[in-house]
Nucleic acid binder design. Structure first.
Lengths: 192, 192
DNA sequence: CAGAACCTACCTACTAGTAGGATTAGCACC
DNA sequence: GGTGCTAATCCTACTAGTAGGTAGGTTCTG
């Protein structure tokens, strides 16, 4: 078994724990218990907790933005793209025990307790998502599919906040079904 | 100096810390350092951390919902009510070092690590806010001020998610000004 | 055999929480 | 108005448990 696999297994467990309860609630012992590898061995792959969080952040951002780019470059119409984008957040909430929010929603809450490289990663993720959303919205407005006043960038920030917040509050009640209903409602308003 | 004051001082510091970094990042030592009262004395007023969190939750919910009811019962038109409501979230972000989000936004992220009474309090806060928002929206629609399709309850959930999420992500960049811009944009879309 | 991977055993710092002793404040009683 | 009791408040000093992290040895693998 090459090290890549173990590294992946560790990152998977860490990511899972962070998405459930946040980075502060995630410990090396928790990861160890989850995957049956001693605490010290995790330190061998990720010397510090910061390095582990950083690695999870990088991987998640690359993976998520890759999916988003796939949607953005597809032949779908803008409204369908937006639905697919929202679907990414809903899908996260469907996974496992249905109590996982977007990784960056969790880290956003803990922003002030994060080291600077991790905090910078969070900020960048927000910017990157809003930029891609803004492009989809512009496209939709040009094609006459969306009817909104104001800057597309601001609407993008609005939708992003809605999805991140929605994923967090929907865990309290209603789960992914509720998040889906909320996003559909938002699209209805946008298409108005 | 009666005990009520010390209790309040402790709760103020605890609330501040939770709104900044979350309940998991808040420790009795942090509170002690912040207000210059020994750790053990805090235990005298709040035997366990859970009891302290619970007390902060109750107080915040009562205070916040009181403000919301004041807005709801005022003579303002529905759009102005909604602006005032959003203003509560913006005001939180203005306080202190401008890095405080809504208490329940933070606790929502940490929901799975909370004890059941606290978790129940979070759920109730969400329900209570959405119910009040729904009433404002219904009123606005009846008066022809808002034009949205679908259930008012869903739009309420949408706006609440937007504000909770917005408060969290705006801390990363832009602060209260950005949150204000986002909420104004949302109102523009609703009035559209 | 070299190096990566993983282990046991440990360290220090910090966590929530406790025991028990000082200090203070209110209050009945003379 | 003092005196003595009570209870609340706040303290120092401690506990057990857990956090992140390290030292150094063993096992596995190319």
């Amino acid at each position: 078994m090459p090290s890549r696999d173990t590294k992946t297994v560790i990152m998977d467990a860490a990511q899972d724990l962070i998405q459930r309860g946040g980075a502060n609630a995630m410990s090396y012992q928790d990861v160890s218990d989850a995957i049956g590898i001693r605490k010290a061995s995790i330190h061998h792959h990720f010397p510090t907790k910061d390095s582990l969080i950083e690695a999870v952040i990088q991987r998640y951002a690359a993976y998520f933005l890759g999916l988003v780019d796939g949607i953005a470059e597809s032949k779908l119409d803008p409204a369908a793209k937006l639905r697919k984008y929202a679907g990414l957040f809903e899908a996260t909430l469907c996974e496992g025990k249905q109590d996982k929010a977007c990784l960056f929603g969790m880290l956003g809450a803990e922003l002030s307790t994060l080291r600077s490289p991790a905090a910078a990663g969070v900020r960048r993720f927000y910017r990157d998502n809003e930029a891609r959303l803004a492009r989809m919205l512009e496209e939709g407005r040009e094609k006459g599919q969306f009817h909104f006043k104001g800057e597309a960038k601001l609407v993008a920030a609005m939708i992003f906040a809605l999805l991140e917040g929605g994923a967090l509050v929907a865990r309290a009640e209603g789960g992914h079904k509720r998040l889906h209903a909320i996003t559909e409602q938002a699209l209805k308003v946008l298409e108005g």
